[in-house]
Structure formats: C-alpha cells, structure tokens
C-alpha cells in the first residue's frame, strides 16, 4: 500500500479551485436563456402602433371647438363612410415629403365595438378593411373612444347617444 503523504497541498487546492471555477462557468453558459428573437424584435411593432395611434389621433382632433372630429363624422354615418375614411387613413399613414415614394405595405381592418344596452354585452361589426385579410406578421391594434349621437341604419346600435370604441388592426402585408 502506498502511504498517503502531505506533499504538494497547494497544488491540490489550486486544482480543486480551478475545477470549481470551470464547472461554475460551464453552468452559467449552459444555463443562459438563449432566445432566437433578438431583444429589439418588438421595436417594429412599437413603431407601427405609434403610427396608427398618431393617425387616429389626428383624425379624432376637430379643427375647432364647434365642430366634431373627422372620425366622429365617419362613425356617426355608419359604415357608409368607409371610402372617405379609407382615403384619409391611407393618406395619414403614408405621409411623406413628396421627394420620396414609399412602399405601400401597411394593411388594416377597422371595426366598431358598442355596448348592447339590454344585456350589457359588447357587440362588434366590421367598418371595413384595406388589403386582403391575410396577416403575415404580428398585427397591432390601436383604438379610440368615439362619441356617437346618431343611429345610422347600417349599424346595430340600440341606444343613443352612446360611446363606441373604434379599433384598427394594422399589419405589414
């Protein structure tokens, strides 16, 4: 039997320490939460959402105190105003300097949500859509509350005046 002696203790301790450090390093590297989406993946979504919000805000801002906003006008007329709404929104979403032309790839779908006074449920109907209803990338939704004191025949409202949510889903097609 070989006698255990007490030589080279510092080397033993060093070896042990190095081993522990290597194991800990390997643990941290393997334990890293690898995400295949980079951290800025949502920045494009945020920009689209901001463009949409700004366009609706512009549409919902009246030119002066005595008239309603453009958006109120469209909503108060039921679905009949889709064409003028479509033109205005397209115009706002693609505003440019005139010196460049932009690729027209934003698509959207607009719906109106209202409360049914008998059941307190929320109902919805489609106001209109631009482009095919095929979303390629994650869509974002923007909405505005709109006051409506008209009961257009093309809309299923059951009380008036009322508050509606006008919601636009935007995506890049």
């Amino acid at each position: 039997m070989v006698m255990a002696d007490d030589r080279a203790q510092l080397y033993t301790i060093e070896g042990l320490t190095a081993g522990l450090i290597m194991i800990a390093t390997a643990y941290f590297v393997l334990n890293t939460g690898f995400m295949y989406a980079p951290g800025d993946a949502h920045i494009a979504d945020m920009q689209l959402e901001q463009i949409g919000t700004d366009a609706l805000l512009m549409m919902d801002t009246p030119v002066n105190d005595s008239v309603g906003s453009e958006l109120e006008g469209y909503v108060n007329d039921g679905t009949g105003q889709w064409d003028s709404f479509n033109t205005t929104l397209n115009n706002y979403l693609r505003m440019n300097t005139g010196a460049t032309s932009m690729v027209n790839n934003i698509r959207y779908n607009a719906s109106i949500y209202y409360r049914k006074s008998s059941t307190d449920e929320v109902g919805a109907f489609e106001f209109g859509h631009f482009g095919d209803l095929v979303a390629h990338e994650p869509a974002v939704s923007v909405s505005r509350l709109v006051y409506c004191d008209n009961n257009p025949p093309s809309a299923p409202y059951d009380h008036s005046p009322q508050e509606l949510i006008f919601e636009v889903i935007l995506w890049r097609g």
Partner: peptide, 9 residues
C-alpha cells in the same frame, strides 16, 4: 348610459 358604455368597452 355613457358611463356604462365606457366601463364595459
């Protein structure tokens, strides 16, 4: 009615 609309929407 408007307050109810706002709350449920």
């Amino acid at each position: 009615a408007i307050i109810k609309d706002l709350k449920s929407l």
